[in-house]
């Protein structure tokens, strides 16, 4: 199944399903909780039409401060209300000094951070009564790292029991920015734990830096990395992320079609939105 992020900019068209018709949609609970009026009506229409996965923004699992219990309570309630099948988040932090920053900051690759994050993932999973699927984020500088990124990720997965959200574009961006081999990096990950894939576009802002913008079409080398990667994975849902600089919708449908063709080429069987080995 190949889905797309549910954006307000083309919500009506998604619901109409004529110019664009993904297999599922994804949205951030934070953008839709405690909402009424026009947008709530559209949200209900979208949820009636499509299966929904949720991708959170404000959990801040890597934050040095305690988890926000009120936030967790609202997210849990929201996921239950809309019968969300999969909830994913980011291996990063967005809150520190009791201040939200609304962006994904890189966590130091350190063993104490592994233990800290793993324990918090377990707390969230226990409270939510569902597995978390954690995304490997793009980052532009390491921060006081004491271990490799792949070891850091693998240890979190091992200690927490979470699943992985493999954002193939992020891996491409990170490999370019930090000068490592994307394929080798992916090979070092616990690929049997991948439960979800994201794909997106990016922007090269300087000769040695790419920013993960979600504002451009996916480029061919990222498609190639995706195709090479999914051959090593069980079938999982794949999402096209497009958050800014929206093209005509048939162009987005073209990207969905291309992703789906690659999936169909290598994954002979269909799959549920949530894989069974959680």
């Amino acid at each position: 199944m190949v889905g797309i992020g549910f954006r307000r900019e083309f919500a009506q068209e998604l619901i109409a399903g004529e110019l664009i018709h993904p297999d599922f949609i994804e949205f951030a609970p934070e953008n839709w909780m405690h909402i009424g009026g026009h947008w709530k009506k559209l949200l209900h229409q979208a949820v009636e039409r499509y299966p929904v996965l949720c991708h959170g923004l404000s959990l801040s699992i890597g934050s040095p401060e305690p988890l926000d219990q009120e936030f967790l309570r609202y997210v849990k309630s929201f996921l239950e209300e809309y019968q969300i099948q999969l909830y994913s988040e980011h291996i990063s932090y967005s809150k520190c000094d009791n201040a939200h920053m609304y962006d994904l900051l890189p966590v130091p690759f350190r063993m104490d951070a592994v233990r800290h994050i793993s324990e918090r993932i377990q707390q969230v999973q226990d409270y939510m009564q569902r597995p978390l699927v954690m995304e490997i984020v793009s980052y532009y500088t390491p921060v006081a790292a004491e271990m490799s990124e792949s070891d850091f990720i693998s240890e979190i997965v091992r200690q927490s029991g979470c699943q992985l959200l493999l954002d193939v574009n992020n891996i491409y961006v990170n490999a370019f920015n930090h000068q490592y081999d994307a394929k080798e990096f992916i090979a070092q990950l616990p690929l049997d734990k991948v439960g979800y894939i994201h794909m997106a576009g990016h922007e090269k802002v300087t000769p040695d830096l790419i920013i993960d913008t979600h504002a451009d079409a996916i480029i061919d080398p990222v498609y190639d990395l995706f195709e090479g990667t999914i051959q090593r994975l069980k079938p999982v849902p794949v999402l096209l992320e497009r958050d800014y600089n929206f093209p005509q919708l048939p162009e987005l449908q073209g990207e969905l079609n291309r992703l789906k063709a690659i999936c169909n080429k290598h994954w002979s069987r269909n799959h549920a939105l949530v894989s069974g080995n959680i």
Binding site: S63, Y93, C96, D97, M101
Partner: peptide, 26 residues
């Protein structure tokens, strides 16, 4: 909490820089 004081401090310094532009001991 498993997080060491040093890692905590690093994360604080990084996030404070993002908000204020002040480079701490990082």
């Amino acid at each position: 909490m498993h997080l060491s004081a040093e890692t905590y401090s690093v994360q604080q310094a990084f996030s404070r820089y993002c908000r204020t532009g002040k480079k701490g001991n990082l």
